[in-house]
């Protein structure tokens, strides 16, 4: 049995689910960020798989999309870590349960 588009899509969906679960269940900001990165990379996997296997697809668009999404994810992670450091300096913690000044 050869590896086809379906396999990549299933793997990508599973990874996305794991990432989403991590982002929602983790209490540590860095852990949440790892989950988010996993979500982005899962999508990247399905994008390149579509670009590789679909006959009708504009192959280059899919691959260029992945390059952009990697770049954007890196920028987002940089800002997130900067904010995490700013929070840690004031509260000595990056636990989201303890970041709770704002609530109704």
């Amino acid at each position: 049995m050869s590896v086809g588009l379906e396999h990549f899509l299933v793997l990508s969906a599973l990874l996305f689910g794991v990432g989403l679960f991590m982002a929602l269940a983790k209490r540590n900001i860095v852990g949440i960020l790892m989950g988010i990165e996993l979500m982005f990379n899962a999508v990247n996997l399905s994008l390149v798989a579509f670009a590789r296997f679909l006959e009708a697809a504009e192959r280059l668009s899919g691959q260029v999309f992945v390059v952009f999404s990697i770049t954007v994810a890196a920028a987002e992670a940089a800002v997130a870590l900067a904010l995490a450091v700013a929070i840690y300096r004031r509260r000595e913690s990056v636990d989201v349960d303890r970041i709770n000044l704002l609530r109704w």
Partner: peptide, 29 residues
Amino acid sequence: GIKYLLLGAVAAALTLYGMALLFGLSGST
């Protein structure tokens, strides 16, 4: 800032997944 960012990044990942599916369905961006 951090609340906005974490939720915003999750939302961005969901958007991106939707876009990847559209690309897969239509073969075009």
